[in-house]
C-alpha cells in the first residue's frame, strides 16, 4: 500500500503553516504589494521626476550618509562597549548591560525629545557646544546623534555573544607563538568577530535609514539641510500627494530589501564562523 508522502507524526502542520501564510499575507505582503501597485500608476518618467527632485535627493544624501556614519561610529564604540562588558569586571556592569537595550525599549518619540532637550541651543549640552561653534540641533549632526542612539544596541548585541564564546585557548595559543596583545587582537580575535561586527553594522544602518521618531525632533526638518527621507514621505502625504509619497517609499523599500538580503547572508556567515570550536547546538 502506498503512503502519502507528506506523512508527519506531529500534528498541526497544515493548520499552523496555513495560518502563518494567511496572516502574513493579510498583514504584511498584501499591504506592501499595494505600494508597488500604486507606483505602477505612474509612468517611468513621472516616477523619476518625483524620486530625483533636488529636495528628495538631498534627503537621500542626508539619510544614507548619516546612517552610514552612525553605523560606523557604533561599530567602533559598540565593539569597545561589548569588549568591556564581556572582558572586564566593574561595578554596575549588570545594570549597564541591561540598559544597553534602552533604545529598543524606549519609544522613539521620547528619545527624540530627550535628545533635543540635550542638544538644543540652550539645552544641557547645547549651551556649551553652541559657543564653540558646534551646532547640533536642526543640523545634520543632530540627525547623526539620534541615529547613533538608536543603532548602538545592534552592534553590542551581535558582537557580545561571539566575544563570550571565544575560547581562551585561541589567545593563549597566539601568545605562546609570540604574538603581542595587539597582534593577537588584530590577527586572531578581530577576524572571528568580523562577521558579527558587519552584521551589527548592517542592522544599525538598516534601522537608521528608516528611523523617524527619534530624528524629527532634533533635526528640525529644514528642507535641503536636515530633512530625512521618511519625513519626505510624510510631507507628501500631508499634501495629499499619495503617488509622490509612494514613489519615495518604493525607493526606500528596495533599499530595505537589499539590506535585508545582505543581513541574512551576513548572519548565515556569522552562524557558520561562530560555530567552530564551541558546539553550542547539539
Amino acid at each position: 500500500m502506498s503512503a502519502s508522502r507528506t506523512f508527519r507524526v506531529l500534528p498541526g502542520f497544515r493548520l499552523t503553516l496555513g495560518y502563518t501564510l494567511a496572516y502574513l499575507s493579510l498583514i504584511v505582503l498584501l499591504p506592501l504589494g499595494a505600494v508597488f501597485l500604486k507606483t505602477a500608476t505612474l509612468s517611468l518618467a513621472e516616477f523619476w521626476t518625483v524620486v530625483s527632485a533636488p529636495r528628495v535627493v538631498a534627503t537621500y544624501k542626508l539619510s544614507f550618509g548619516m546612517s552610514l556614519a552612525a553605523a560606523a561610529i557604533n561599530a567602533v564604540f559598540g565593539l569597545m562597549l561589548a569588549w568591556a562588558l564581556v572582558r572586564y569586571a566593574f561595578p554596575g556592569k549588570h545594570l549597564i548591560d541591561a540598559l544597553i537595550d534602552l533604545p529598543f525599549a524606549l519609544p522613539t518619540a521620547v528619545a527624540g525629545i530627550a535628545l533635543t532637550a540635550l542638544y538644543a541651543k540652550n539645552g544641557w549640552l547645547g549651551q556649551y557646544l553652541e559657543p564653540q561653534g558646534i551646532q547640533v540641533a536642526f543640523r545634520p549632526l543632530g540627525v547623526l546623534i539620534a541615529l547613533v542612539f538608536i543603532g548602538l544596541p545592534f552592534v553590542v548585541r551581535t558582537v557580545q555573544p561571539i566575544l563570550e564564546d571565544l575560547d581562551t585557548e585561541l589567545e593563549e595559543a597566539a601568545a605562546s607563538l609570540g604574538a603581542h596583545r595587539w597582534q593577537t587582537f588584530r590577527h586572531v580575535i578581530l577576524p572571528v568577530l568580523l562577521p558579527a561586527l558587519l552584521t551589527g553594522f548592517a542592522l544599525a544602518f538598516a534601522r537608521a535609514v528608516g528611523e523617524y521618531g527619534s530624528v524629527i525632533f532634533i533635526a528640525g526638518n529644514i528642507p535641503m539641510v536636515s530633512e530625512i527621507t521618511p519625513l519626505m514621505i510624510i510631507t507628501k502625504l500631508e499634501q495629499y500627494d499619495y503617488t509622490g509619497a509612494t514613489a519615495i517609499a518604493v525607493v526606500m523599500l528596495v533599499v530595505s530589501f537589499a539590506l535585508l538580503l545582505l543581513i541574512n547572508s551576513l548572519q548565515a556567515w556569522t552562524a557558520s564562523s561562530g560555530k567552530t570550536g564551541t558546539g553550542r547546538d547539539r
Binding site: 502563518t20 501564510l21 502574513l24 504584511v28 505582503l29 499591504p31 506592501l32 499595494a34 505600494v35 500604486k38 538598516a206 535609514v209 528608516g210 528611523e211 523617524y212 521618531g213 521618511p230 519625513l231 514621505i233 510624510i234 502625504l237 499619495y242 509619497a245 509612494t246 517609499a249 526606500m252 523599500l253 530595505s256 530589501f257 539590506l259 535585508l260 538580503l261 543581513i263 541574512n264
Partner: peptide, 24 residues
C-alpha cells in the same frame, strides 16, 4: 524564505508601515 518574510516588517521604515494602510 518564509523566515525572511516574517522579518520583513523590521526592515521597513515605520512611516512606510503607516503609508501602506493609507493606500488601502
Amino acid at each position: 524564505f518564509l523566515i525572511t518574510l516574517i522579518d520583513l516588517p523590521f526592515s521597513v521604515s515605520p512611516v512606510i508601515a503607516g503609508l501602506i494602510y493609507v493606500l488601502i
